[in-house]
Design a protein around this nucleic acid. Sequence first.
DNA 1: TTTGTTTTGACAAAAAAATAACAATTATGA
DNA 2: TCATAATTGTTATTTTTTTGTCAAAACAAA
Lengths: 216, 216
Amino acid sequence: MAEEKKISMAVIRRLPRYFRYLSDLMKLDIKRISSKELSERMQITASQIRQDLNCFGGFGQQGYGYNVEYLYDEISKILGTDRRFSCIIVGAGNMGNALANYENFSKRGFDIVGIFDVSPDKVGTVINNIKVLHMDMLPEFVKTHHVDIAMLTVPNSKVNEVAIQVTELGIKGIWNFSPTDLRLGDDVIVENVHLSDSLMVLGYRLKESMEGRKTS
Amino acid sequence: MAEEKKISMAVIRRLPRYFRYLSDLMKLDIKRISSKELSERMQITASQIRQDLNCFGGFGQQGYGYNVEYLYDEISKILGTDRRFSCIIVGAGNMGNALANYENFSKRGFDIVGIFDVSPDKVGTVINNIKVLHMDMLPEFVKTHHVDIAMLTVPNSKVNEVAIQVTELGIKGIWNFSPTDLRLGDDVIVENVHLSDSLMVLGYRLKESMEGRKTS
DNA sequence: TTTGTTTTGACAAAAAAATAACAATTATGA
DNA sequence: TCATAATTGTTATTTTTTTGTCAAAACAAA
Ligand SMILES: NC(=O)c1ccc[n+]([C@@H]2O[C@H](COP(=O)([O-])OP(=O)(O)OC[C@H]3O[C@@H](n4cnc5c(N)ncnc54)[C@H](O)[C@@H]3O)[C@@H](O)[C@H]2O)c1
Ligand SMILES: NC(=O)c1ccc[n+]([C@@H]2O[C@H](COP(=O)([O-])OP(=O)(O)OC[C@H]3O[C@@H](n4cnc5c(N)ncnc54)[C@H](O)[C@@H]3O)[C@@H](O)[C@H]2O)c1
């Protein structure tokens, strides 16, 4: 077991992109691809593709390239797309609704099994066939249903307490939509979606480009 | 003008985070802060903070630290938060609705001035005081209103054509929510929000942590 | 004013990431 | 079957990013 080579986040964050491109290639009925051709499509170097893939093992064949379907399956396995994750949405507002109505998450293995809120306006309503429950029901719900991920779409001012609540119930994965960095235990994985940050970066780049500078 | 030092994306993507922390400090009525203390709050090294800020000029004072409000204002200027951007939303579906109803974008200088769709179910409805217009009205709209940014929340299958449409009308900034990488001219700035990618990374990290590995 | 402490800004060093190079291997076509 | 072209996996090199160091500057207290 001495072969514990740590894989960097830089590599991991590129995996879903490979996954997407391979999925597209399959739809185009392309059976094989070389790192060179893929690099042209993805606008990255062939070297990087080969190096990234080799973090996980040799999926290609010299003189031939990569079998698209095989590589797709392998990346699926790496990403865990072959397994299913149970998710709840906390906060049935604008963003919570959007997430609950998005069908593609379940295609990628993420099942929304519950939606929670505190507002009497929301509790009892049905979103995409799921009844919104009151937060008071959450402890009981987590006892009877296994929950891997909590998608937090509550107001910024509430996200800290809600994050603590869900982690105390044993939920280990948090997908956070609030513009706040959560500080939780080491065994909890937090992935942030900082939409405003992204928009501000767009604003910056736009401003720079209007002033004639390039942003890379 | 020989002082054109290019600022890396790595630095730029950290700016909104500094902005957020400084904003929080101001709310706490904290007037000054050293890179050391800020580094503890932000969980990054003091060295990185000083190096990042120095890309744009010396905002601090030796022996004192940084004046919170002054630094906040300077980062505002760098990010362009002092100016306003006109935005349209294309695709009045789940995500388009969520964005249209989010009040905080305008607080950061991003004004939603129009919403467009093609579906008769959506055209004519009013979201957050803005009437949804048909896509056919877009060329005329862009002629009479200046538009900096198009937020694209159309289905995946349509996003390419819509992106081409809006760029042909002269819109230079695109905030793309589809799991697709747009290929547009060099003068168009595209910022992607790949939600599914983010969720898949969460899945990966969760899986790794369940198996006992650390992800950094 | 003087002295000791704090803290920046600049630079140096280290680490990480990306790119390039190339031997080894396989496919392909004569 | 054999020679040639293609293409990987791996190692080396380069570039970028992060971290560490320290003199110089400013503060604070005596
Ligand atoms: N809507 C967007 O486009 C958008 C964009 C960027 C960031 N965000 C962030 O996403 C989060 C949600 O935004 P939104 O627009 O959906 O807000 P929203 O106000 O529409 O919805 C929030 C929901 O959370 C519920 N809630 C409040 N306290 C709760 C609690 N303690 N437990 C459970 N539910 C609770 C509210 O009743 C409400 O239904 C916010 O943090 C916001 O900053 C949203
Ligand atoms: N909803 C989510 O949580 C979520 C999550 C991840 C990614 N996304 C992505 O965001 C995008 C939008 O998702 P959604 O859930 O809001 O979809 P949606 O189907 O709810 O809304 C799409 C809207 O676009 C409109 N539209 C279709 N063709 C158009 C055209 N040519 N011009 C203008 N409008 C057009 C439709 O009428 C519809 O109102 C998709 O690409 C999706 O993959 C959404």
